[in-house]
Amino acid sequence: MVYPDGHVGWIATSHELVRKVLSDPRFSHNLENFHFPVTRFGEPAVGSSPEIPGMFIHMDPPNHTRYRRLLTAEFTARRASRLTSRVEAVAAEQIAVMREHGGPVDLVANFAEPLVLRVLSEMVGLPYEERDRYAHAPAVLHDPDSTQEEVGAAFAQLTPFIVEVVEGKRKQPGDDLISRLVADGELTTEEVCNIVTLLLFAGYETTENALAVGVFALLHHTDQLAALRADPSKLDAAIEELLRYITINQYEMYRTALEDIELDGHLVKKGDTVTVSLPAANRDPAKFGCPAQLDIDRDTSGHVAFGFGIHQCLGQNLARVELRAGLSALLQAFPDLRLAVAVDEVPLRLKGSVFAVKSLPVSW
């Protein structure tokens, strides 16, 4: 695969090779030497940056291990399940907003977006009532059409706000992730702020769009929606199939070989960048029969929608709780939920790092 900067690297598309690359410690995810698979601001992006304190997604062990260890307990399945009642309450409140608005209504703006942002904000410790100061930044960063000036302006607004929140938690802690991180005393303000920024970027638009696109897929595949309505016990299986079928992480998954490595008979040389395609892996016919078909009864075990290896999505348990609560609330509240426009009129965001629907007009 030829990268925008002219580097000749690789792209892994099979389920087997994607898992191999993501789990092999000989492949690095730091920013000291990588080649980005798409352009940024219209220009090739070449990595040569030192590690950013707290931004552990672009670190290798042992630094990655240190930061991730501090957060693991916050995102266990048990901790996420304890949030279920709160997530369901927020979903019910957003259903009420939709009813008050009346159809047709944009499900993204009135349901998926506020549900995910409210839950994430409460868990992390960000004041939702001040969301105008932090919610815009992830959208700008994930939008490939954003200019360098727009990204810079978004960070210029976001960073001092998060510093303000972190320092406030030092003086008056609450029952939230920021308070527990500062109470630990191991991290600097810069590290905590970068961790919070990472969680915001990784956990907001991703889950919001997984929910919105999942609803779109069900409303499009009416047979699968009918099967789910007929047997609500299939909801968890349906969520896993939706994650597989429309894997929203499109291209920001890449690794650099730290030494010469043979993969499937090919020599990947030291310094080569390998981009792994999660959507392709999740539609690998060698792993999933009839992969282009949405089938909520299929065995989805082993899908890689949340990645694989040591960088596998930290918040996947919370994401599943949000998807379950959101889809369940919609199915129960609106037995006749349907698209308010033709399928091909739903505006898609195809170029962003996160596949998304820009809006999803629905009626009932």
Score class of each variant (00 low, 15 high):
239 I>R: 00
191 E>W: 01
228 L>W: 00
223 D>K: 11
194 N>F: 02
218 L>G: 04
205 E>F: 02
197 T>P: 09
230 A>D: 13
222 T>M: 05
201 F>Y: 08
235 L>C: 12
213 V>K: 00
198 L>N: 13
227 A>R: 15
193 C>F: 05
236 D>S: 14
221 H>E: 11
239 I>Q: 00
198 L>F: 01
236 D>L: 05
190 E>G: 11
201 F>A: 10
194 N>A: 01
216 F>M: 09
205 E>M: 13
237 A>S: 15
205 E>I: 11
221 H>T: 11
220 H>E: 15
225 L>A: 07
198 L>C: 03
215 V>M: 04
237 A>F: 00
208 E>R: 15
238 A>N: 07
231 D>M: 12
214 G>S: 01
190 E>D: 10
211 L>G: 00
235 L>W: 00
203 G>V: 11
197 T>D: 05
215 V>P: 06
207 T>S: 10
229 R>D: 09
189 T>G: 04
233 S>H: 10
230 A>T: 11
225 L>Y: 04
231 D>R: 09
199 L>A: 00
228 L>G: 13
219 L>P: 05
209 N>F: 02
239 I>W: 00
193 C>S: 14
232 P>S: 05
215 V>T: 03
198 L>Q: 13
234 K>E: 12
202 A>Q: 07
206 T>C: 07
206 T>S: 09
196 V>C: 03
202 A>P: 02
203 G>D: 02
217 A>Y: 13
213 V>H: 01
189 T>A: 03
231 D>N: 12
207 T>P: 10
202 A>V: 15
227 A>C: 14
219 L>N: 09
217 A>K: 13
236 D>G: 06
239 I>D: 06
204 Y>D: 03
218 L>P: 05
232 P>C: 15
200 L>V: 11
191 E>Q: 09
216 F>T: 01
190 E>V: 12
213 V>P: 00
216 F>A: 03
223 D>T: 14
211 L>N: 04
236 D>V: 04
192 V>F: 02
193 C>T: 08
221 H>F: 13
231 D>K: 13
212 A>G: 06
226 A>N: 02
216 F>E: 04
226 A>V: 06
206 T>M: 10
239 I>V: 14
192 V>N: 02
198 L>R: 13
232 P>Y: 06
224 Q>N: 04
224 Q>C: 08
234 K>V: 04
224 Q>K: 09
206 T>Q: 09
209 N>I: 02
200 L>I: 11
220 H>Y: 13
213 V>R: 05
204 Y>C: 01
210 A>R: 15
192 V>C: 06
209 N>C: 01
225 L>F: 10
240 E>F: 08
233 S>P: 15
190 E>Q: 15
201 F>L: 10
205 E>H: 14
226 A>F: 05
207 T>Q: 08
200 L>C: 09
230 A>S: 14
191 E>T: 08
239 I>P: 04
220 H>P: 03
215 V>S: 00
231 D>S: 15
192 V>G: 04
195 I>E: 00
201 F>V: 12
235 L>D: 03
228 L>D: 05
